[in-house]
Design a protein around this nucleic acid. Structure first.
Lengths: 220, 220
DNA sequence: TAAATAATTTAGACTTGTCTAAAAATATTA
DNA sequence: TAATATTTTTAGACAAGTCTAAATTATTTA
């Protein structure tokens, strides 16, 4: 029905869609998939014919309900495989993303269902991101980008947006893993950096680039 | 390095090679992969350039040591995933082949290694076929095609050559699963059929078509 | 051993997904 | 608002893998 390539485009468009209501720009998709804008235009036409996206020349795309369902089922598989790789095969959290990227395209709903059961119906992946359910519902659990936070206070790290090994290794070194709690003690309006402090009194600085990729929930 | 398609060709050539010393015919590969002879010729040229097979126009191919190593590593992955699907996800033995066919192309030696450990280093897959080790060694354990047997006596079913769901379902209905023992009580030289009897006295007929796809070892 | 048959290879074309370079449309700025 | 800059699309090409039909080569049979 859908090829691996189509699935990857839909995933990228879905991820770029969340948060901003607007349509997704060709260049953004190209950047996200490390491909050329020309290729994106070609693929978008194809996805548009399949009613996976709504497309208007020169004005970007908007994912349809149908396209979103496909994207969410791939994301569900991806995150379940990540749990498998970490919980069962003992991979580290910065090693699972690339492997899950391959495994997610194995197309069997029965496999996904049984994997889910085998793992004990997990609700979040090792990076703290929620696993969509069979119907494509996401338990959003009120997480917000750290970069959007304007109030000082206590927060809990609930997920990440950049899954590259280098970023995850950086976070681990800093002590920033899903579930860790911290307080924002200083916010610099000039460069949008912030200073946070952990419960063990250790304090670190976080740049805008980093906070844009961290999902947090208010803690207490 | 190698594409999924190349891997599938090498696997097919490897399987067609075992047993007969001779080179493998283009038509045999085409039949095994349900593709045209023309396509096979094209791919064989490509594999020949990569030194995966030795090719002489109009005279079939012979797999090289290098090609065999690739084939065996795919077969290793395939059979390990089959064990996972049956032991952990509780799939039935006639359901695992097609899924493993997809999973085997996820290319990570580290994944294979950890999966092997997670499964407890199994030596055989659910169909009784041996799992090649990391170095591509196969524990052949002296199994022979039932169709090659000329002596009556006790045998143990150790593997199958046809992994299609329909064949496996047929075997299960007849009570022929890996590990089951039986005695050959009658062999018909005219149509090469045979009559076997299980330890529970139940007796069945086996046609040449079926016995060509059953691997057995002598029992006692 | 020459003709007929069967198998294999070549030739040319199609699909998917990609690219670069040029053209078209949109957005920016002076 | 007119000129400039940016983004997007089109045009044309390429690689991988596939196909059908025609041409070769090998094998069989008379």
């Amino acid at each position: 029905m859908t090829t691996s390539t189509e699935e990857n485009y839909l995933k990228a468009i879905y991820h770029l869609s969340t948060g901003n209501q607007n349509s997704v720009l060709t260049s953004a998709i190209a950047g996200s998939l490390s491909t050329s804008s020309a290729s994106v235009t070609d693929m978008i036409k194809k996805l548009s014919e399949k009613n996976m996206v709504e497309y208007e020349r020169y004005h970007g795309v908007r994912i349809t309900r149908k396209g979103e369902k496909v994207a969410l089922s791939i994301i569900r598989r991806h995150r379940l495989w990540e749990v498998f790789l970490m919980d069962k095969l003992k991979f580290k959290w910065d090693e699972v993303h690339d492997l899950a990227e391959e495994l997610e395209h194995v197309s069997s709903d029965e496999l996904t269902k049984r994997l889910d059961a085998f793992l004990g119906f997990p609700k979040f992946d090792p990076h703290g991101d929620p696993i969509p359910d069979t119907n494509g519902k996401v338990h959003s659990n009120g997480q917000v980008l750290l970069s959007e936070i304007t109030k000082k206070g206590k927060y809990i790290l609930s997920g990440v947006n950049d899954h590259s090994p280098s970023f995850l290794q950086y976070l681990e070194k800093k002590g920033l893993i899903p579930g860790s709690t911290f307080s924002i003690v200083e916010m610099d309006e000039f460069d949008n950096s912030m200073q946070i402090i952990f419960s063990n009194k250790k304090s670190i600085f976080i740049s805008k680039e980093v906070s844009k990729n961290l999902l947090v929930r208010s803690h207490e």
